[in-house]
Structure formats: structure tokens, C-alpha cells
Simulated scan of single mutants.
Amino acid sequence: AMEGLDRANRDDVSRMYRARKTMLKMMRARGYAVEFDDDEQDQVNWSLEAFLEHFGEDLNRRRLDFVSAKPEDVDDSIFVCFHDGEGKVSKNHIMEYVQKMQELKVKSGVLVSVGDLSPQGRDVIRDLTRTDFSLEHFKEEDVLIDITEHSLVPEHVVLTPRDKKALLDRYKLKLEQLPRILPEDPIARYFGLKRGQIVKVVRPSETAGRYVTYRVCL
């Protein structure tokens, strides 16, 4: 399917394929279901050929959008959208995505774009934090590879509220006593960590088999 494309197009298609694959994995890591009903197979493991076969000739970034829900709570859904175009993402573009979220009755969104946000676009996203809606932003170049698969990145597991309480009770800890992970840390952004959430970090250890630490997002 790639033969008919010139090199620039081939590179572009490859980037779309890789970015969408990372976003599917990212949502799965956050506990969202990324198996879609109409699938013959798991989209996360699609080959480039399967990706092209599914999206066909008329491939543009807007067609890569998807919505995922938490299996145990279908009301907790997230809309992942891909901005088509290389330029800055304007305030009006952001408003369009928020409108789409309203139509889909989804409160959380993640936007992936080739270009940066315009200052006004960034303001709109920041102002959303005062509403029921939230929109995260990733640049496409930052999601071409899945950072959690890098050999030097240890395994991270986000604690549920119940596990968080059990940990703090067991060790008689206050949140402030734990080592921190900043909200803008790439790993915190990958998991969509909110302030106050705790992540368990599991590293291989020569002596203990594995070495576990905890970090709080503050």
C-alpha cells in the first residue's frame, strides 16, 4: 500500500501510524479500553499495512481520532484528537475540539498536533481547568515513540485511591513526605497524573529482584 506514495508522504503516513499507536498504548496504560467493537484485531498491534488498509487512500490526521472508555465506568471516557495541519493550533481550533467533546458527552480530551499551540490556544486550554472539561496537548514528535518502552524507564503503576490510602496508612505517611514527580514530567504527562496521585516505580534490582519506590504528583 505504501508503494504508491512518494517519500515525503511515506514519512508522513509513518508518523501518523506511530503517533496513533502510542496514543492507543497511552490510553490503555491509563485504564481505558482500546479494543473497538468493529475490529477484526487489536489496533494497538496493527502493522503499518493494516493501518493503511483500515484508513485507505483518503488518509488525514482528523480521521485518526478515537474515543475510549473505562471498562468499569463507561461514563469515564476520553477523546483523542489529531490536528490536521502543520501550523500553530489556534484558539478557534481548540474551541472546535471542545465543542466536539460536548457533542460526544466526553469531559476529557487529548490533542496531538504537529505544530505548537498558539498563545491564545494555550490560554483556552488553561481556562478549561475552571470548567468540567480538560484538554491535554502533546506534540506529535513527542509521541512517535512510547517513552515507557525505553529500556532505561522503569515500570510505573498509578495507584488507585484505595491503594493510595492503604500505602499512606501502612507507613503513616503524609503526601508531602514522598518523593515528587512534577505534573509536567514526561511520565506524569503520559499517565495523565493529577496532583495528589501516587505512582509506584518498580526497578529491577540485582539483590532484591525488584526495588519499589513511590512518587507523588505535586
Rank of each mutant, 00 (worst) to 15 (best):
D76F: 09
Q99V: 05
L117D: 02
H93F: 03
P154Y: 02
R170N: 15
P186D: 08
P186W: 06
K91F: 07
D65T: 10
F133V: 00
F79P: 05
N45T: 08
I145Q: 13
A8M: 11
E206T: 14
P183D: 09
E49Q: 12
A29F: 08
D116I: 01
L135M: 15
L24T: 03
D75Y: 12
L59N: 00
C81Q: 08
R189D: 03
P179L: 03
D65V: 04
P119I: 09
T213A: 05
S151Y: 08
E184A: 10
F55G: 02
C217F: 01
V114Y: 13
V143W: 10
I181R: 01
D185E: 11
I187N: 01
V80I: 09
S151D: 07
M2T: 13
W46H: 03
K91G: 05
V157D: 09
T22K: 00
T22G: 02
E35P: 04
D132K: 14
Y211Q: 05
L178N: 04
E86L: 13
T129Y: 14
L117A: 00
L111C: 04
S113L: 03
D37F: 13
V44K: 12
Q120L: 15
R15T: 06
L5Q: 08
P161I: 06
R210W: 04
D146A: 02
R18K: 15
E3P: 10
G87D: 13
Q41F: 09
C81A: 14
E49Y: 07
D132R: 11
E3V: 11
V153H: 06
I181Q: 04
Q102I: 13
S90D: 05
Y211T: 09
A208R: 05
R15L: 08
E103Y: 12
D169R: 13
M2A: 12
D65P: 06
L168A: 01
L182T: 14
L117C: 01
V89I: 05
K200C: 09
G85L: 06
K100L: 11
D84H: 14
L135P: 05
Y214E: 00
A29S: 11
F79V: 00
V106H: 07
H156M: 02
K25A: 11
L64E: 00
Q177T: 05
F191D: 05
Q43W: 10
